Computed example of a mutant assay.
Amino acid sequence: MALTATGIGAISLVCVPTIEQDTAIAFYESLGFEKRTDTPFGGGYRWVEVYPPGGTTGIALASPPDGDITPMQTGITLTTDDIDSTHAAMKALGVDVDADVARLGGPVPPMFWFRDPTGHTLMVVEQS
């Protein structure tokens, strides 16, 4: 594995603050993610990680220490080989997705955004 000048070699997790961890787990599992870690730690907290099948980068669904969360644009981008199929499947599951797939043209791939149960926004792009 190639490393940066500082010794960093990969992105393993992105953290999404979540108060209702069980609701978030069920949501991501409904999208086909798998829960790989669910470990209690100090003060009644849990460390939860979900991954796309076969994925090496996951989403940590972590409770914030103060219990306060403001929904945010996460910057998390998920990929699919068929944007229209993925959009339709997520819509059929009742996921809060954009009404339409955005097709901006040029080098920008087709994409749409969706919101998780906490209200955080994630993006799905078509990977060619």
Rank of each mutant, 00 (worst) to 15 (best):
Y45P: 00
F27A: 07
I76G: 00
A10W: 08
P110N: 05
G32A: 09
D84E: 15
L78H: 02
Q21S: 12
T4V: 01
S85W: 00
I8E: 12
T57W: 01
L122A: 12
D68M: 11
D22T: 03
F112R: 01
L104R: 11
R46E: 10
S30W: 05
G9Y: 08
G75Y: 10
M90T: 06
E126D: 07
M123C: 15
P40Q: 08
A92T: 08
T37S: 02
T118N: 07
I59L: 14
H120M: 01
M1R: 06
V16N: 00
P17Y: 14
P40C: 10
P17K: 06
Q127D: 09
S128Y: 12
I59E: 00
A24R: 01
P110C: 05
P107R: 02
M90W: 14
T37R: 03
M72D: 12
V50T: 09
S30Q: 10
V48H: 01
T70C: 07
M72T: 14
I59S: 00
G55E: 04
A10K: 14
T79E: 10
I11S: 07
I11N: 06
V48R: 01
D96K: 11
V14L: 07
G43A: 12
P107H: 05
G105L: 02
G67W: 10
T79R: 04
G9Q: 11
T39F: 06
A26H: 10
A24L: 08
G58A: 10
I83V: 15
A24T: 06
H87I: 02
D96F: 00
P52R: 13
P110I: 07
D82L: 04
D68C: 05
Y45G: 08
Y28Q: 06
T86M: 13
G7T: 09
G54T: 07
T118H: 01
D100N: 14
T23K: 15
A99R: 12
V124G: 02
F41A: 07
G44Q: 09
K35F: 00
A24I: 04
I83W: 02
A88R: 04
G75S: 09
V50A: 09
M111L: 14
W47V: 11
G7W: 07
G119K: 05
S12N: 13
H87T: 04
A88L: 02
V16I: 15
Q21M: 10
A102Y: 08
A62L: 14
G75P: 11
G75D: 05
M1G: 15
A88I: 00
I8T: 13
F33C: 04
L31Q: 10
Q127S: 14
W47R: 05
T86A: 14
W47K: 05
A60S: 15
G55N: 09
A92K: 13
T18K: 03
V50M: 05
F33N: 04
L104I: 11
Y45N: 15
Q127T: 08
P64L: 07
